[in-house]
């Protein structure tokens, strides 16, 4: 493992939502700050910077990751997914996002990016979850606006619609 010097900046390169990115970071720079302020990917939010609220959740090499507990230097060479990569195109939302909008699963939207990342990751591996499973998954996220139920409903609905689409495309 390379030793980074505390007082100098180092080049960090990785793939962000499929596209190569690079910028400089001090070794102590958090991934959340790096994404937001060095790369301008401000969709990932910071609510606590101590790993409890879940707002900063991203996916690194297929693993759910709190970007506020990760150093930018740690993801050098990795594959990072953030909320900016969820929609199929700039003017279209994905199924999960649409389910959120239909169900009023967000109010201020500050917590939303992290929750979407957790759900997107989970639903891709567990296409038919129960309410209990979703509640369990999301217990690592804090939302102060919605009281959660609409979020859970959106997740279940998105899972259902994804399964339905799959079945119909199989047919």
């Amino acid at each position: 493992m390379t030793r980074l010097k505390a007082d100098s900046r180092h080049l960090v390169r990785f793939k962000l939502n499929g596209k190569p990115v690079e910028a400089e970071a001090e070794p102590r720079m958090l991934l959340s700050d790096f994404l937001r302020h060095q790369l301008g990917a401000t969709g990932t939010h910071v609510g606590c910077e101590h790993g409890v609220c879940g707002a900063c959740t991203v996916v690194v090499d297929g693993m759910l990751t709190r970007s506020c507990l990760t150093l930018a230097a740690q993801v050098d060479g990795c594959d990072v997914k953030t909320v900016e990569g969820l929609a199929p195109s700039a003017d279209r939302l994905g199924a999960l996002q649409r389910a959120f909008r239909r169900n009023h699963a967000l109010q201020c939207g500050f917590c939303t990016a992290g929750i979407l990342m957790s759900l997107d990751h989970y639903l891709s591996r567990n296409p038919a979850p129960t309410e209990e499973e979703i509640r369990d998954l999301l217990s690592g996220h804090l939302c102060r606006c919605t009281g959660y139920t609409p979020i859970i409903r959106a997740a279940l609905e998105a899972a259902l619609s994804a399964t339905a689409t799959e079945e119909s495309s199989d047919a």
Binding site: R36, G43, E84, A87, L93, R101, G109, T112, L116
Partner: peptide, 17 residues
Amino acid sequence: ERVEDAALLSGRGRFID
């Protein structure tokens, strides 16, 4: 549906930071 949501759901919110 809320007009606010599309931006917030795709990481294009404009919060102070």
